[in-house]
Amino acid sequence: MGKKLPPEELELYKAIDEILWRDWDPIGVNEMPEARDEYQSYLPHIFRLAVEGKDAKHISSSLVATIEGNIGLGASKEHCHRVASKIVSAKNEIIG
């Protein structure tokens, strides 16, 4: 994140960070506090998709691609869609 975000976008950024950590957690490390930054490199892209108004299907596809392409694991499309839906809901609640 190179620029300062408006307050609502900063709130959304933090909410998505928490969703990725708590709910997405494709490698199962969210019970280890020392790994708290594990998914933060993926956060700016997912945040941008949400701010741009992408739907849960689009965000879910990106989450699946990240797991399979970057992390190198198999992905549950259903799980990623549930996580993406939470991200879209957070965006709608915080920014509208």
Rank of each mutant, 00 (worst) to 15 (best):
H79K: 13
I19P: 03
L5M: 13
A50R: 00
Y39T: 07
E8D: 15
G28S: 11
R48C: 13
G69S: 05
G53R: 07
K14T: 03
L43D: 02
K14A: 02
L43R: 01
I27M: 07
Y39D: 03
I67Y: 00
K77D: 12
G28R: 00
I67N: 05
Q40H: 15
R22A: 09
E68G: 09
I59Y: 13
N70V: 13
I87P: 04
E93I: 09
G2S: 13
H58W: 05
L73K: 14
I71P: 08
E78K: 12
P33Q: 02
G69K: 07
Q40E: 15
A75Q: 07
S76F: 08
A15L: 00
M32K: 09
E11K: 14
I16V: 13
Y13Q: 07
A35N: 04
E11P: 00
D17L: 01
I19K: 01
G74L: 14
P44I: 13
S76P: 11
K77S: 12
L43E: 12
M32E: 12
T66S: 11
Y39R: 03
L49W: 04
V29H: 00
R22C: 09
I67D: 14
E18L: 09
A15K: 08
A65V: 02
F47M: 08
E68C: 06
L5V: 07
P44W: 08
I19L: 06
I95C: 06
L73T: 04
E93W: 06
V88R: 04
R48D: 14
E78C: 11
G96T: 02
C80S: 15
D25L: 03
G53Q: 07
N92P: 05
L49S: 01
D17T: 04
